[in-house]
Simulated scan of single mutants.
Amino acid sequence: MRIGVILGDVHTSVSPKDHLDGLLRQVEAAQRNGISYLTIGHHYLYGDLRWLQPLPTLARIAAELDEHVTLATTVIQVPLYHPIALAEELATLDILTRGKLVVGAGAGYRKDEFGYFGIDFTKRFAMMDESLRLMKMLWTQDVVDFDGRFWKLADGHTHIRPWQEPHPPIWIGAMKDAGVRRSARLGDGWPVTPETKIPEMVRLMALYEDERDRLGRPHVKHPLRREIIPGRTSDAAFERFESMAKQRLLAYAARQLATRDADELTREFRTVAAKETFIGTPDECVAQIRDLSALVPIDPILVRAQWPHMSTEQVVEYLDDLGRDIVPALRQVDSVDRVVRDAVV
């Protein structure tokens, strides 16, 4: 079992210089501690938080990349790009990483971001489907003719092929049945959100596998977005997570992305954390991961090391704890190849 780190946002009060310096220190610490994936999300006009744009940021990190590390977008909002531009930029990034790239793709969820670009939010799923189809053609064909609903291309002579053949793996984000089927049809893995409860995870992965069977496509393991919070004691782990993440989780709840509202999160933070994270002593964290990996095909687990108010020293300390107590133990853990459909959870 492998671990990846999401390179998150920082408050805009942090200077660009300090942001970059902290980012590169985080990258160094992650790689030194055996982290296998470095990933970054994608947003525009994000208010008082600065989220660096993923493609140039990952291109910069590619210069620091260790042999055992893969970069990933988790996830890039595909409808906000023209597919020709996105296909060529991702192919370029795949070359710069020497084939160490995963494309995490999503349709987006913030209506205001689509409004900034004058793009119809209600058409985002259809746009993503069409864009991915065209991008795959641009990655694999010498000449492309495409007559779609949103984009048309006649006699397009391609000039940038990805390093990986036929193209980088694609993780397609989804939260509902139709999206999971889309992920099975068009991608190579479904990034599972942290608030997905285990019974729903089992059900949706079974749905994914049924769709893959129908299409004659191979089964895969899925990246799981879930925090790993080790502490000297269980209480210390919960206190650590509260100091790291509580305010941000309340902000997510206010944006209606969390499964509970802000008042409920405040009252029941530990209850929510126990259900949506791997938390406790290092042995308890590993046991929780081992139990879940016996039910569903997951790999890697994507954690967030940096929350907006954390100092770089706190981020490095967390990564050092993972490298000492979690990463070596998880190397001995493997997940099932297919979801256990009759699991009692």
Rank of each mutant, 00 (worst) to 15 (best):
E130W: 03
L207N: 08
R255C: 06
L101Q: 02
L250H: 05
G173N: 10
I35K: 07
V78T: 10
A85E: 05
V316H: 03
F125D: 11
Q53R: 12
F121L: 10
V316N: 05
D299K: 13
L96M: 14
A251H: 11
D18N: 13
P230V: 02
A206H: 05
D145F: 06
A273H: 04
G47R: 12
A273G: 08
P282K: 12
L45W: 00
M201R: 07
S183E: 01
K123N: 05
E264W: 12
L58Y: 02
A29L: 05
V69C: 13
D263V: 07
G148C: 07
V339W: 09
R182H: 05
L207T: 02
A107F: 02
A72G: 06
R331Y: 10
R50K: 11
D299F: 12
W51E: 10
D325A: 15
L90M: 13
S234P: 03
D261H: 12
T92H: 14
G22A: 05
L7V: 01
P218H: 08
V14K: 15
P199W: 00
S36C: 11
L322F: 03
I40E: 02
R324M: 09
S15L: 08
G8N: 13
D291M: 11
G106F: 01
M128T: 13
G41W: 02
Y81M: 08
V202M: 13
F117G: 10
V27E: 11
L134I: 04
D320I: 00
A305S: 14
T39F: 05
D147N: 14
R25P: 15
I298E: 11
L55P: 12
H43L: 11
E313L: 09
F269C: 10
G179Q: 10
L38P: 13
I3R: 15
I279W: 02
V75Y: 02
L65V: 00
M175N: 12
I61G: 09
T259C: 10
Q31K: 12
K123C: 04
E113F: 00
T70I: 05
P194C: 10
A63V: 08
P54F: 03
R124H: 06
I95E: 04
S311L: 04
M128P: 11
V102Y: 04
R341L: 10
A72D: 02
R182E: 01
H68Q: 14
V220T: 13
D325V: 00
A254L: 13
D334N: 13
M201T: 08
I326K: 05
M205K: 09
V336C: 15
A258L: 13
D283T: 03
T73A: 06
L86C: 07
Y109A: 14
I229L: 15
D18E: 14
L295C: 07
I95G: 04
T140L: 06
F269P: 00
D299V: 01
A29K: 03
A178D: 10
G148P: 06
S183P: 01
L330V: 00
E239H: 07
H157C: 08
L90A: 09
R161M: 08
E89R: 15
L250T: 00
E28K: 14
F125A: 08
H43Y: 08
A87D: 01
F117A: 11
A63W: 00
T73R: 02
E227F: 07
